[in-house]
């Protein structure tokens, strides 16, 4: 399996999506679903944005998943902190789904890994726990190992486990970037077959002036360290071209002159 792009745009943190959710207007949701597929996304992340009531969040998640999958055949990543909303999304989803996300907190793992196994879903697992985001790669790896062991214990295959080492904005936590790259390298050695890896890419460039430049430079570096997928902007052309080229240079996909186009049509 080659590099996978998880389109980040259907998220209630964006104003147009928040408004669409409030008005239950399918149009912006479906436009972004189509636009991200056109850009080359392989998955669509779906996030309701902050909703106070868990029941309402579950109901909105179901609506968002169905609305998006009405117009595209892409699989969805159900992005929520509420187990209720995640299960509602899993039930509504067509085809393979992905849970976004669990942490290495025992209670979360005990709730979400069984859900992943039950729905044969992939799951993103963040290398953090109740103490927050670790400072260095050693601590991240220790949490990743707990995630691997718990996933395995619940019958989630390594091909479905996406470890996220968590990247912080470079303008406030510069020292974390090399730690994250090192974590990616080591996560690949935790099991055989190795777990997959992912990252919330855009976070690296929060509040920096030239975000696309930082995003695509970091993407190329992270791919080289073992990044298999990213939650990212599927409509940033140079970023997508960087991902396509990375997959070719890492010999993940067989070269041909139209490789960028093939990457997007996959």
């Amino acid at each position: 399996m080659g590099f996978e792009v998880i389109g980040e745009r259907i998220n209630g943190l964006f104003k147009d999506i928040r408004q669409a959710v409030a008005e239950r207007d399918p149009k912006p949701i479906q436009e972004w679903a189509l636009k991200q597929k056109e850009g080359g996304a392989h998955w669509l992340d779906i996030n309701t944005g902050p909703i106070a009531s868990q029941e309402e969040q579950a109901e909105i998640m179901e609506w968002l998943v169905k609305t998006a999958q009405e117009v595209v055949d892409l699989p969805v990543a159900i992005d929520s902190t509420s187990v209720l909303a995640i299960e509602a999304g899993l039930k509504a989803a067509k085809g393979k789904a992905m849970i976004n996300s669990t942490t290495a907190e025992q209670a979360k793992m005990d709730a979400l890994f069984p859900l992943a196994a039950k729905y044969n879903a992939a799951i993103i697992a963040l290398a953090m726990n109740e103490k927050g985001v670790p400072k260095n790669s050693e601590q991240r790896i220790a949490l990743a190992m707990e995630l691997v062991a718990n996933a395995d214990g619940h019958g989630v295959p390594m091909e479905d486990l996406y470890i996220d080492p968590l990247i912080l904005p470079v303008n406030v936590a510069q020292d974390h970037v090399p730690e994250v790259l090192e974590t990616l390298r080591q996560v690949k050695m935790l099991a055989n077959p190795a777990p997959r890896t992912t990252i919330g890419l855009s976070n690296v460039s929060q509040k920096s002036p030239d975000r696309p430049l930082i995003n695509r430079t970091f993407l190329a570096m992270a791919m080289s360290a073992g990044l298999d997928s990213a939650i990212m902007d599927a409509n940033d052309d140079p970023l997508m071209e960087t991902a396509a080229t990375g997959a070719i240079l890492l010999n993940q996909s067989i070269y041909c002159d139209s490789y960028v186009k093939v990457f997007r049509q996959r």
């Binding site: 067989i254 070269y255 041909c256 002159d257 139209s258 186009k261 093939v262």
Partner: peptide, 11 residues
């Protein structure tokens, strides 16, 4: 030539 093979199929 596997690269050309893939390219020709695309074309």
């Amino acid at each position: 030539d596997i690269n050309l093979c893939k390219q020709l199929n695309i074309l």
